[in-house]
């Protein structure tokens, strides 16, 4: 497992990095998000909810196993939250990625238990939402098969991971302010915002985000060539068109 964890490691916060104020606050933020996502999905998907989300979660887990060659003879892998957000829609992505993150935390200690909410916030909420709306905004009303949508997916992958990394850096950076002993000795993540945010951003903006952009675009292009009805929101549009033609005929 060692190999495949190296690149994702920066985004999976272990236990002991964040102090109680931060992780409890993130649990309080995440619980209503999970609740709302669950409500929304069960009314949208009905009995399809469990199998669809289970398979999507399994996919979110497995996507990290794919090694991709990167310059320098090394390999990397994608987080995958951007493409899941684009294909399944952001709310389904919230649940699917959260389930995958819980599994990773329980099975490998990859990402902490206390930090589950923090990790879910960064990777299962920020990433798919940023990716989905960036993709929607850039692709506009272009044809579903247009190449502009591939570029939109790439940009969505890029900025969603960079922003998620920025959030992670911010969560790290507020630790020395929130938690320190009377003598000012930090108890958790010891580096200040001035160190953590640039470190996380630089690492991603010039590294992992580029890979995420490439992979998001490649997967999107494949889906576009193969079966566009899978894309979230597109099926209903096609059905609408069909209904329209049916009503005019």
């Amino acid at each position: 497992m060692n190999d495949i964890l190296v690149n994702g490691e920066a985004m999976h916060i272990p236990d002991g990095y964040l102090g109680p104020y931060t992780y409890i606050a993130l649990w309080i933020i995440m619980i209503p998000i999970w609740y709302y996502a669950g409500r929304k999905l069960s009314s949208e998907l009905k009995s399809r909810q469990v199998p669809l989300l289970a398979l999507a979660a399994a996919f979110s887990f497995v996507i990290m196993m794919f090694n991709v060659p990167i310059p320098g003879g090394s390999t990397g892998h994608a987080v995958g939250a951007a493409i899941i957000g684009i294909v399944l829609g952001p709310w389904a992505a919230v649940i699917a990625i959260s389930v995958a993150l819980v599994l990773q935390a329980l099975m490998f200690g990859d990402g902490g238990i206390t930090a589950i909410a923090a990790n879910c916030f960064n990777m299962a909420v920020v990433m798919p939402f940023v990716a989905y709306y960036a993709y929607k905004l850039i692709s506009g009303s272009t044809e579903i098969t247009s190449s502009r949508r591939v570029i939109a997916a790439a940009i969505a992958g890029y900025i969603s991971l960079a922003i998620a990394a920025g959030f992670t850096g911010f969560e790290f950076g507020i630790q020395p302010i929130l938690h320190h002993t009377a003598e000012g000795v930090p108890l958790y993540m010891p580096y200040s915002l001035g160190v953590t945010v640039p470190a996380m951003l630089l690492e991603h903006v010039f590294g992992f985000s580029i890979l995420e952009a490439l992979i998001t675009a490649l997967i999107f292009a494949y889906v576009q060539r193969t079966d566009t009805t899978l894309l979230y929101g597109e099926k209903s549009a096609a059905q609408k068109k069909k209904m329209k033609t049916a009503s005019t005929a």
Binding site: L55, F66, L218
Partner: peptide, 24 residues
């Protein structure tokens, strides 16, 4: 090679959604 990996990921994604339909 990267394109190959991207394609395989896309295929896995399509397979999993398709499978979820059948499982359902």
């Amino acid at each position: 090679e990267q394109k190959w990996v991207g394609g395989r990921m896309g295929y896995t994604l399509i397979r999993s959604i398709d499978m979820s339909e059948k499982v359902h």
